[in-house]
Amino acid sequence: MNPGLKLILMIILVLEISFIENLSLNVIIIIICLIYLLKKRPSSKQLVGLFLGPLIPAVGIFLSQMFYGNGGSLLAGVFATRIYAYVFLGACFTFSTNMTDLMKALEQSFHVPAKFVYGILSAFNLLPKVIQQIKVIRTASLMRGVKINFWSPKIYFKAILSALQWSQNLAEAMESHGFVEDQPRSQYHPIRLTQRDWSQFFAILVVFQGLVLILNSKFL
């Protein structure tokens, strides 16, 4: 499916399950997502992460709802499984989409201006440099005997100084390579939004609404 459309679908589903307090719904979503994810052949490390990552928050919210909530264990179960449903829905997106394709889809099919698409993409390419720079900032202040923490304004100040300089350099570099803001661009790697994408999108939504209707009328 077109990555942009897939993201919109995921957001709709996540928002919708946030408003429906139904244990079976969450469990069914988790199972369907798991089947989809297994088809994508994730590594065992990814799978373990999927199950263990949300475990602590899920147990935490379960006990909290048991102790202080007014809905008992059933509702506690709803909120615990909801966390898993979020993570699994999110993983269905991340495991099957690469971010460059997502940004290109947003540009080509959803009319996000090119300066946003390429500006954001180019900045995200500096991610490893950003990680390195934060180490440099921390080490530099350690050399002067100052431990800099996430609550120190200085770390953000120095980070923004780097960001100011880098953004200028990057923008100039892009412009010198022929990037012109607000000008139409041709596509080397077109990403299509096909009729098939749209029919899949609506089919999933319709099936999901049916599921919600059935579950709400029979159980819970």
Partner: peptide, 8 residues
């Protein structure tokens, strides 16, 4: 750990 649900 939150995957794409962090977007929300």
């Amino acid at each position: 750990q939150w995957g794409a649900s962090a977007f929300i």
